[in-house]
């Protein structure tokens, strides 16, 4: 209940384990990177405030665990998401192939009102590894897939170098915002006194 109108955006990060979801978060929110790998358990929750065109946005970032055993958490986590970020590792073909599964899984579980236009963003991470020599998924291939899924915005990032991370999240927030529904009129029922619409009254009715 802030005095000035603020917007909260729920952003879900999905992708295979080890593609760098947590590192991207950490780079974006805390500007830190570590080579050490720690698997996320369940989910981590971060908030980041950003300002855009005079408005304050709070990104509520749900950094989920990539391991399959956590997938049962899906429904609970995805509900009411404003944007979904799909992450893969440009050096691991499987993680790219799985994007399709992640996307579909999300749409099934979150069941957004307008799945065709639900805002996704795809990030190809770890472009710094081995100077790009170990890369197996080309930018072209990734962009083609994104185009086929309704022009999902695509970013190549390096959580380690901090490359493109800021830009990617800016796009994420913008997209989430675009999807913001029109403010609806809020109209409760009317009471018809004669009709006796009254609900059970829990008081003493002796």
């Amino acid at each position: 209940m802030a005095s000035r109108r603020r917007v909260l955006l729920k952003v879900i990060i999905l992708g295979d384990s080890g593609v760098g979801k947590t590192s991207l978060m950490n780079q974006y929110v805390n500007r830190k990177f570590s080579n050490q790998y720690k698997a996320t358990i369940g989910a981590d929750f971060l908030t980041k405030e950003v300002q855009f065109e005079d408005r304050i946005f709070t990104l509520q970032i749900w950094d989920t665990a990539g391991q399959e055993r956590f997938q049962s958490l899906g429904v609970a986590f995805y509900r009411g998401a404003d944007c979904c970020v799909l992450v893969y590792d440009v050096n691991v073909a499987k993680s790219f192939d799985n994007l399709n599964n992640w996307r579909e899984e999300f749409l099934i579980q979150a069941s957004p009102p307008d799945p065709e236009n639900f805002p996704f963003v795809v990030l190809g991470n770890k472009i710094d590894v081995d100077g790009g020599n170990s890369r197996v998924v080309s930018e072209k291939k990734a962009k083609a897939w994104c185009a086929s899924k309704g022009n999902i915005p695509y970013f190549e990032t390096s959580a380690k170098e901090g490359f493109n991370v800021e830009a990617a999240f800016e796009c994420i927030a913008k997209n989430a915002l675009k999807n913001e529904p029109e403010e609806e009129l809020y109209l409760p029922d009317a009471i018809d006194m004669a009709g006796g619409q009254q609900q059970r009254s829990a008081g003493c009715e002796c």
Binding site: V29, E49, V50, Q51
Partner: peptide
């Protein structure tokens, strides 16, 4: 009044996050 993205936590790279993660972020800090 910028029309730019601006990180509110800019200049605060020190040890104090403006919007902290809440759940014990498994990351570095």
């Amino acid at each position: 009044p910028s029309f730019e993205w601006k990180n509110i936590s800019e200049g605060d790279e020190v040890e104090r996050p403006l919007s902290p993660n809440s759940s014990g972020y498994a990351g570095e800090r």
